[in-house]
């Protein structure tokens, strides 16, 4: 069952302007792989070439930051909403 993936404004240009898309996968990694298959422009924007979460994004499954779950190995059942957000910080 596909999960809903919400995209921040700055990434929507790579997904035909959509705020929310659907992608398949039983883990976050599989969902992001499917996302890039559908929208190649998102390659490298969320997951780095080395296979880690990009440092400039925060990813949430429902309200939980995946860095405190199982990162890209976080399991999904299809009922979740995955949100990708810019990781904004400074001093």
């Amino acid at each position: 069952m596909p999960v809903e993936v919400r995209l921040p404004t700055i990434l929507r240009q790579h997904a035909g302007g959509q705020a929310s898309v659907r992608a398949n996968g039983e883990t976050l990694q599989e969902v992001f792989d499917d996302l890039v298959r559908q929208f190649p422009g998102l390659a490298g924007q969320v997951v780095t070439e080395e296979g880690a979460l990009h440092k400039f994004v925060n990813v949430y499954v429902n309200d939980d930051d995946v860095r405190y779950l199982d990162k890209l190995n976080t399991k999904l059942t299809g009922d979740e909403v995955v949100s990708i957000l810019p990781a904004v910080a400074g001093g």
Partner: peptide, 28 residues
Amino acid sequence: KLYRIGIDWMKAERDADERGIEIIGIVH
């Protein structure tokens, strides 16, 4: 000396989507 915005960005963006506007600025 530092700030970090987390899940509140999602809440703001959802509200902005409903209003037909978008996030254009970051304040600290």
